[in-house]
Amino acid sequence: MGQLKAGSRLRSAVCDTEVMVVAAPAAEVELSCGGAAMLEIAAARSGDGAPAPDAAEGTQLGKRYVNEAGDLEILCTKPGQGSLGVAGALLTVKEAKPLPASD
């Protein structure tokens, strides 16, 4: 997949998950969902795959997912059954620091 760009959108190849890249490292990253490499948003998914059992905890709408290094941040814009991962490790939900509503 190559280098991810902030603002770009991707879809899962094996479930309904759609995401937007919020922050990405300069290095090449292969983002996966349900254990399979994610597709460009415009690409069609074949429809016969399913999330791998070790990557099937699902994604939640509006949650942000980060890698351990903290340089990759992914926003879930449509939830699905697969889990997001990179280089074999699953991404974790970013804990939001609550800010007071300001407007």
Binding site: G7, V22, L61, G62, K63, R64, L75, A96, P98, L99, A101, S102
Partner: peptide, 15 residues
């Protein structure tokens, strides 16, 4: 990009 960055940075979705 400015407005989306502001919202993502300051508002929790479905908060």
């Amino acid at each position: 990009k400015h407005l989306v960055a502001y919202i993502l940075g300051s508002v929790e979705f479905a908060g």
